[in-house]
Structure formats: C-alpha cells, structure tokens
Computed example of a mutant assay.
Amino acid sequence: MAVVRRTDAGSGAPIRLEGVCPVEEAETLALLILEDPAASVDWTACTLMHTAVYQVLLRLRPNVLGTCGDPFVARWLTPFQPG
C-alpha cells in the first residue's frame, strides 16, 4: 500500500513516502508540497517510485531526506536528486 502523508500537522513537518508510490500518488505529493513549500520529503521508506512522483520532486524541488528506498532511484536518479 502506498502512503504519501505529512508526518505531523505542523508547518514544515516532513512529507513521508512509504511503500510503492504509484502514479496516483504524484498529485497527492504535489498538493502537500504546494500547501507547505518548507516541508521536506522523507523518501527512505519508498520501495518503488513511479516516474511521475519523481517528476513532482524534480519540478517542485523540496528538500529530500536520506537515500530513496527504491533501489533504481537510489542508484540512477539520486545524482540528480531534487532539492
């Protein structure tokens, strides 16, 4: 089950990506980042990321925390890490 959620209700609270993050999560992620541009994104628990989700990160450029849990993203896309 995919989860894109804010870890706390406060401003600047990190947005957490967990499990498989399919294309449907891209819009949720974009809305959460646009609601609070100061929020960081923790992608360490994301096991598989659709490219649409990655594109949201590239376009909106939040600060990302840690190394992505998706091995492909961690290996091939982290050099182009958003934020």
Rank of each mutant, 00 (worst) to 15 (best):
T44K: 12
A38D: 14
S40M: 10
E25T: 05
A30E: 14
S40F: 01
T47Q: 13
T28I: 06
T28L: 03
I15P: 12
V20W: 03
S40I: 05
E24D: 13
T51R: 09
V23R: 00
E35D: 15
W43A: 14
C21E: 06
A26G: 05
G19V: 12
A38E: 14
V41D: 06
T47E: 14
P37K: 04
L32E: 10
T47P: 01
T47I: 07
A45C: 10
T28Q: 02
I15Q: 09
E27F: 01
V23D: 01
E24T: 03
I33Q: 08
A26N: 04
D36G: 12
R16W: 13
T28A: 03
D42N: 15
E25I: 01
D36P: 06
L17K: 03
A30F: 02
E24R: 02
A30L: 05
A39C: 10
E24S: 07
A26Q: 07
D36K: 09
T44Q: 15
A45W: 07
C21T: 13
V41T: 05
A39T: 11
D36L: 12
P37Y: 11
T44M: 11
I33R: 10
L17D: 00
P22I: 00
A38Y: 06
A26V: 04
E27N: 04
A45Q: 15
L34Y: 00
D36W: 13
V23Q: 02
E18Y: 11
L29N: 05
V41W: 08
T51P: 00
G19M: 08
E35C: 09
H50W: 05
L48G: 11
A39Y: 10
V23S: 02
I15E: 12
L31D: 14
A45T: 14
L29C: 06
L48Y: 08
L32K: 04
W43P: 07
E24F: 00
E25H: 03
T47Y: 00
